[in-house]
Simulated scan of single mutants.
Amino acid sequence: MRDRLEASSGLWLRRWTVRDAQSVLAAFADPVMRYQVSEPVASLDAAYRWLTHQSDQWDSGEGFAFAAVDAMDVVLGNAAVRVVDQRHRTGWVSYWTTTTSRNKGIASKACRSLARWSFDEPGLFRLELGHRINNPASCRVAKAAGFAVEGIERQKLEYDGVRFDVERHGRLATDTDPTMPV
């Protein structure tokens, strides 16, 4: 299975490695990243644990996380798919970008590339993702990556005692690729 692919000119997706620990630690130092993980990544040891988890998921075929990097191999973000239902070939997509990489189209390009890879390599048919409805930037990423809005899951998430609605998006292997003219 390919573990490196070109997402767009100057943007690559590659498998995470232990040499990315400092970049992971720096990314998770951003308060916006607080809810992206179940265990805080607040130390170099925690960054190594996060990277080890990504590697273990990859090796087991349960999930595939890619570092989004530029031509100089600087980490700009993450695009990942977790296989949630092998029988029905369904995956759950997640993504994030570093503070300096936001609002540049990196997440949507990475997600488009990840989706195509997910359909071609592990053979998934349906990809899903969700975002808090108070996160319009994440919604723009999902739509730009070809994920159709499928509905609202009421009060699905709870952070610091506050419940949030989640907008669900889906993309099928048979959907028109968003980079291709209709």
Rank of each mutant, 00 (worst) to 15 (best):
M1K: 08
M1T: 08
R2K: 08
R2E: 11
R2D: 11
D3S: 08
L5Y: 08
L5D: 09
A7W: 11
S9K: 13
S9D: 14
S9A: 14
G10S: 07
G10D: 07
G10R: 09
R14S: 01
W16A: 06
V18D: 15
V18F: 11
D20A: 01
S23D: 15
S23W: 02
A26Q: 12
A27L: 00
F28H: 11
F28I: 00
V32I: 10
E39Q: 12
P40S: 04
S43N: 06
L44V: 07
D45P: 00
A47N: 06
A47F: 02
R49V: 05
R49L: 05
L51K: 12
S55I: 04
D56W: 06
W58I: 01
D59A: 12
S60E: 14
S60T: 13
E62S: 11
E62K: 10
G63K: 08
A65Q: 11
A65H: 12
A65E: 09
A67P: 06
V69P: 03
V69T: 13
D70F: 01
A71S: 13
A71H: 10
A71I: 07
M72K: 11
L76W: 02
G77M: 01
N78D: 11
A80D: 04
V81D: 02
R82D: 04
R82E: 02
R82Q: 09
V83C: 15
Q86L: 01
Q86F: 00
G91A: 01
W92C: 05
S94E: 13
S94W: 11
Y95H: 12
W96M: 03
T98I: 01
N103T: 09
N103R: 15
N103K: 15
N103I: 00
N103M: 06
I106Q: 04
I106H: 09
A107Y: 12
S108P: 04
K109E: 15
C111A: 15
C111L: 14
R112H: 07
A115R: 15
R116G: 01
S118A: 15
D120H: 15
P122G: 07
G123S: 04
R126D: 02
R126C: 03
L127Q: 13
L127K: 14
L129T: 15
H131R: 15
N135E: 10
P136G: 03
P136M: 02
P136C: 02
A137V: 05
S138K: 05
R140Q: 08
A142F: 02
K143S: 05
E150Y: 06
G151Y: 10
Q155I: 01
Q155N: 13
Q155E: 14
K156S: 08
L157F: 09
Y159H: 15
Y159E: 12
G161N: 07
D165E: 09
V166W: 08
R168N: 08
H169V: 06
G170K: 12
L172H: 12
L172K: 10
L172E: 08
A173S: 14
D177G: 05
P178Q: 12
T179F: 02
M180N: 10
M180T: 14
P181T: 07
P181Y: 08
P181L: 05
